[in-house]
Nucleic acid binder design. Structure first.
Lengths: 193, 193, 193, 193
DNA sequence: AGATAATCGAGACGGTACGTCGCGTCTTTTC
DNA sequence: GAAAAGACGCGACGTACCGTCTCGATTATCT
């Protein structure tokens, strides 16, 4: 029976492993992280990690979900769409600009590139909520009906990803604002809220 | 530890190593690729690889430059900016959608993510020419002066990258066209050519 | 940690565990045998094994006693000591030569070698009866008083063990007879019975 | 190519590994010995051990050969066969009686029991020389032609092994002498040398 | 007969050693 | 002196068992 029973899972271990993972990520970074070190730090056996996760990347992913999962992702609706977008775009840009967060995200993206399942997890559990939140705000903002909102949302985040990934330019607040202006124009800036 | 003398370098080995690298990349993918396997396949010694390259990623990068670094990247200028953009965006989307070509891009992106200096190489030697070509076309197309062309170019390629990376939606011709429409609106579609 | 109550012991489990042990010994050999496998095969929990036995070796020992501990070991006394010895030595040699029976002996010997207290059990409960039977026959056979019978008995079985253990020669009927002849000479073959 | 080239073997590593093995055997005993510990102590990689030996038992065996291999095994020939045998039998008995040596020999015998190849090595490289030496001395001692010398030699060592293995009695000097007396009677003690 | 308590099957757990894999260096021999 | 070949020290990997533990579900005695 190579399929363990989730009902009998030890919650204390699970927590200890995720906590240890986050701690080690902060201390040493993703590349230096090893499954053995996580287990040792968590006071767990390696087998316990391999029983419930696929390996290092899966644990890290879970640890990050765990961190992020708290918190409301809904965007504010002040009535001023441009201002609201500026807020979220500036925040996103800042997050990508932070080298600490960036390192782990980068590593996870590598996994994403080579593991289809992983890509799905990242997309659905980490990204989708945020994308949907922006999508909702756009809809509420009176964007013309002929604009494909899915494409529109990616028009916002795509360039940031691209710039971060390929380091084609600085990730500054000024950049964020310019981007918002272009996006507003794209979706018809007569929209007001 | 004396720095090796490039003049005495064996061209035959160099070629064999790069060819082997590409072949193995196709067959097994980047993650499974090992320096030992490249050496064995190339009929080379591992030391020869470490003498002339920094390691796996440097060889891969070189092998990919070697493949790609041909061809003219200038965009056509038919006078119809929207039509010209459609051409290039459709082509790009198709390239990302093709699993075969996608594999190479994937490998490159992995490199980019893992190594700062590699990122620079990829950006400057591979990406920049294409981005600049589009930028030139935009400038020639009469885009208003207040539009930051660097941001504009990324407004085109960012979403494609994003969608490809995170599989948030299909990479179809229809998608390409919608994207172009949004971008045209963003940069002020009164522009004509 | 309360000492378990033997009165409440489940006989069905005990049997199933011993049976499973013997079956697995036959199928895979002692070295490959694991407590987990015994438990699984017996439909028992591992704890049940550790509750009643000290571990793998204790279970194996018990399982083997269980198999062997039947039958009369007394030697015949036809009046012809040489003939009687031939009988028992030929039988012993045949037993060691038989790969099937040999497997069990092998397992037992492994136990004996690994654990002091096990060695005592094997010696006293399994071996001693047979050695004593031969010793009795020798005494009745009129062996001179100055011959140490314990040493004499081992003069018979020692060489067989040695040859079996180290494969220094064939275990044939002819060998058995030669051995008996030497032993008879050693203990003074004027003895008649 | 899973077959390493012995010509390229590093003698320094070989020595360090065998030395470390013997040192650890002395310090901790066979059961507590691990391949990882040997490698660490020898300043070698585990792979180097697995490359040249089959595992722990093979290394230990080799380490013991290495210790024993020095030294002449020929028996003295004083003209008095009984006296000469007493010497060698007393020495053998003393060796088996020593708990330190005994532990390792015991462990190796376990391996011998389950590994045919190993049994051959032990027999041919460790035992045979000694057995042959005794055999030669017997032949020179004028043992009657009708005595099978192979059987005779095992008549000496078999009982010792048996007693050691199964702990059926003490391994003392007195025992050694009694054994020699019986053996001398068996092979016809009119023999003089 | 119902309450009480220990045993039972099952298997997750912390741990240790395993044997393998790949890295980047070092050594030997050949060209 | 570069190159082919591959052994080497190292260290992480993912697996196998160990012996302990926790969890209901079953007995099996004792009120």
């Amino acid at each position: 029976m190579p399929t363990p029973d989730p009902a009998r899972r030890n919650e204390r271990s699970r927590r200890a492993i995720l906590d240890a993972t986050r701690a080690l990520l902060d201390e040493t970074g993703y590349a230096e992280l090893t499954v053995g070190a996580i287990a040792a730090r968590a006071g767990a056996g390696k087998q316990t990690i391999y029983r419930w996760w696929g390996g290092k990347s899966a644990v890290v992913l879970d640890a990050l979900f765990d961190t992020v999962a708290t918190g409301d992702v809904a965007l504010p609706d002040t009535g001023d769409l441009r201002a609201d977008l500026r807020l979220v775009v500036r925040a996103t840009v800042a997050e990508f600009a932070d080298p600490r967060l960036s390192a782990t995200t980068r590593a996870l993206t590598v996994e994403t590139l080579s593991d289809e399942t992983m890509a799905g997890e990242v997309r659905d559990r980490l990204l989708r909520p945020q994308l949907d939140a922006v999508k909702d705000r756009l809809r509420a903002g009176g964007v013309p009906a002929d604009v494909d909102l899915d494409v529109a949302v990616e028009l916002i985040f795509g360039p940031i990803y691209h710039r971060w990934l390929l380091r084609t330019g600085p990730l500054t607040e000024d950049y964020a604002d310019r981007l918002v202006d272009l996006v507003m124009a794209a979706i018809g800036d007569r929209a007001s809220g």
